[in-house]
Simulated scan of single mutants.
Amino acid sequence: MEDVGEGTGRPLLVVDDDRKLCGLIRDYLSPLGWNVAMRHTGTEGLEEALTGNYEAVILDVMMPGMDGFDVLRELRKSSSIPVLMLTAMGEEADRIVGLEMGADDYLPKTFSSRELLARLRAVTRRAVVQEPADGNPTGDLVVAELRLNESTHVASRGDETLDLTALEFAILATLMKAKGRVKSREALLEDVSERRFDVFDRSIDVHVSQLRKKLGDDAKAPRFIQTVRGVGYKLVDPS
């Protein structure tokens, strides 16, 4: 079992039964400021993710015993740590399942080192709570009973605090800032991910669908997030 190496790098957990791939990821990211720990079973990976203080988890889907989906399902019961999932062939079904379960992003195992670094930086950047330069918290975004504060990273509907992933929080913030205006899928993806997606990548639809469920929205007659067919989404004040 490999522990986090010595040093002051940014702590990252890689959970994959492919020891060679884990080593390659560590060797690439370590000189770039990451302190990489590795676990090679889902059970060990889940335990480490829950007890360690990591900025992100890179999680393989296909592992014997407890697979990546099982790990993610258990992890999301108590943690919103950014999770970047690895799929053997980049299968769309695996991607959709992972996103619906709360993964922040995905990569096929044919990824390039630059793409890995870009995706990793994006998911960790979204999870960071940014304080304004003057030290004062920013004002709340409010639409009807929805309230969101980017400084405290808290979103609520009425008296209920919403349990959102980092990406869902970012999508909601973007839509609330553009209240009443349509945001195209491409614009949403660029706003919340800070990277360009392939035009046919429909992952944003999955995240919006999950966000709607958490808002108590009915997709057929939504109160908050409306679909503008062929264009994108907009958030409206139901009152």
Rank of each mutant, 00 (worst) to 15 (best):
G139D: 11
E150M: 11
E168H: 06
L120S: 06
L146V: 04
K179Y: 07
E168C: 11
D163P: 13
L120I: 09
T161D: 09
S151H: 08
Q130W: 10
E160T: 14
R125A: 15
K179H: 14
A170H: 03
I171L: 12
T174G: 03
G158C: 11
R121E: 15
S156W: 01
E150W: 00
K179S: 13
I171E: 00
P132E: 12
V128E: 10
L141E: 05
R121D: 14
A118D: 11
S156C: 12
R157L: 10
R181W: 05
K177H: 11
E145V: 05
E150G: 05
M176T: 10
L146F: 06
D159K: 11
E131F: 10
Q130S: 13
E168K: 08
L175M: 05
L175P: 03
A118M: 10
L117D: 02
L116A: 12
E150P: 07
L116F: 06
R157M: 11
T174Q: 08
F169P: 02
T124M: 04
L120Y: 01
V154C: 05
K179N: 13
E150A: 12
G158D: 07
T152M: 02
S184E: 09
G158M: 04
V128Q: 05
K177Y: 02
K179I: 14
K179R: 12
L162Y: 01
N136Q: 13
V129P: 07
K177A: 13
G135W: 01
A118T: 13
R121N: 15
T174L: 05
L117Q: 07
K183Q: 15
A178K: 07
K183W: 04
D163R: 15
T174K: 03
A144M: 01
L117Y: 07
K183L: 15
G139K: 07
L162I: 06
D159V: 11
N136H: 13
T124G: 09
T174F: 01
A178M: 08
P132F: 09
V182M: 04
R119Y: 06
E150R: 10
K179E: 15
A118I: 07
G139P: 08
D163W: 13
I171K: 00
V143K: 05
T124C: 10
D159G: 07
T165V: 12
G180N: 10
V182H: 04
G135R: 05
K177R: 14
A170I: 06
V142M: 07
D134T: 09
P137R: 07
P132W: 08
G180H: 05
A170F: 00
R126P: 05
L167V: 13
N136P: 03
L120F: 03
V123L: 05
K179C: 15
T152D: 08
L167A: 06
R181T: 15
E115N: 12
Q130G: 12
A166E: 05
D140T: 04
M176W: 02
G180M: 03
A155F: 01
P137L: 04
D159E: 14
L116P: 06
L148D: 00
G158V: 08
T174A: 11
A118Q: 06
V143Q: 04
S156Q: 11
A144I: 08
L120H: 03
A127N: 11
E115D: 14
L120R: 00
D140A: 05
E168G: 09
R157G: 09
D140H: 02
E145Y: 00
V129D: 12
H153Y: 09
N136L: 14
S151N: 12
A173Y: 00
L175H: 03
T174V: 06
G135A: 11
T152H: 02
